[in-house]
Design a protein around this nucleic acid. Structure first.
Lengths: 217, 217
DNA sequence: GACGAAAACTTACGCCGCTAGTTTGAGGGG
DNA sequence: CCCCTCAAACTAGCGGCGTAAGTTTTCGTC
């Protein structure tokens, strides 16, 4: 087939289809040939639109990151903004868990990831956190969110009671997989609340006094 | 070459060499052929000792998990034990960051990972945490540790100042990669302290009263 | 209307994980 | 001591992978 009258592929169509395949079959199951077949095309045709498979994955990852809501920074105080961002971030990743290992490598050159980092860091610095501390906070929350989305904690335990007979406290572990949602959600909520609680305490101890001294009403 | 007088391969030698290759060149660069070459052997010979490449990776992952120290449970109170475990866990993963994406999928059928889960869960329940809460705490800390080891936060930012010109707050982001250790370490310490602080507060609020009622001196 | 860029194609290279079948030394039973 | 079985290496090869190279035809532009 030569060049068709109507282009068969667009970057958008490739990204959307790739994400669907990754969601359905996992990151490892995405090959350029399978992706092309799903698009009704031969493998190498993709290279007319993306330089490498990695560039496709970057675009897929960024399309997921782009759905994260950072609008709470500037609208709420830093504390509430962090909470809303973290929940939105986690929701975005949990909707596409198979891409998380790729996405969690860092923002790299992906525009949506950079925009998110900018909003979070800017929001924290704007609230009075020292720059180095703001970096640490952003990193710590990314650690927690990425870790929570990387793989279900509950599904990490095989559903085979015999496996746990040698471990006195794990006799119920085979049931975890069946309660995946409540376990993962409960752990995330607990951890997020605890993290924010601790950060709040540090803010009151180190930042708030300075803020009050600078603008004493 | 037929069967040699002295076996060329052992499971231990395969695991050790595989870990070295993964450390040096990344998870993606480990192929059965490369591994076999490093061992002075042809590719398929590995299959005399392991059923699949995944089984090799399981063994490598478990050898890393086995270095995590959980002895603080039972020796310290739950709070200090959690801290020591988390630090040891992170140190083990950070020493071999390239295997983390594989390892973080959960314990699966890996014995050292199951033993670690058993110790942590048992320690928390023993301290009075309700079972469901103990599960959440273990999960939340695993989220955080795995996320922190999955990829350096600092190295996630490309060292190219031009990339950040469009983002007002990221003007210094290209310097992050140069301070990888202090950034990642600082973020981990901050997050861990905050998490534990929050958990301690919840313990005092929900568990400690019951403990005092049950054993009033 | 000529022409270069664009978007599909085919072919091919060197990797990959893994299977099948072969060879031959090692170790145990008569 | 001989033989039999098993174990641990081998070679050959399958189908799939990412992607480079070159071909064909159409589109958009001057």
């Amino acid at each position: 087939m030569p060049r068709p009258r109507q282009a068969l592929l667009t970057r958008d169509r490739i990204v959307t289809t790739a994400l669907a395949l990754i969601d359905a079959d996992g990151l490892g199951a995405l090959s350029t040939r399978r992706l092309a077949t799903a698009l009704g095309v031969q493998g190498p045709s993709l290279y007319n639109h993306f330089a490498t498979k990695g560039a496709i994955l970057d675009a897929v990852a960024d399309s997921v990151t782009a759905t994260v809501d950072v609008s709470a920074f500037g609208r709420c105080d830093w504390y509430e903004a962090l909470r809303r961002w973290a929940r939105s971030y986690r929701a975005a990743l949990a909707a596409h868990p198979n891409i998380v290992p790729y996405l969690a490598q860092g923002p790299g050159r992906r525009p949506a990831a950079l925009a998110m980092a900018d909003a979070v860091y800017g929001g924290l610095v704007g609230a009075g956190w020292p720059p180095a501390r703001a970096t640490h906070i952003g990193a710590a929350l990314r650690y927690f969110v990425a870790g929570s989305a990387l793989g279900s904690f509950a599904r990490g335990f095989v559903e085979d009671p015999a496996l746990y007979t040698g471990h006195p406290h794990l006799s119920q572990a085979h049931r975890l997989a069946g309660h995946q949602h409540s376990v993962d959600e409960g752990a995330f909520t607990l951890g997020l609340d605890a993290l924010l609680h601790g950060l709040h305490a540090e803010y009151e101890r180190t930042v708030a006094p300075l803020e009050r001294a600078a603008a004493p009403e």
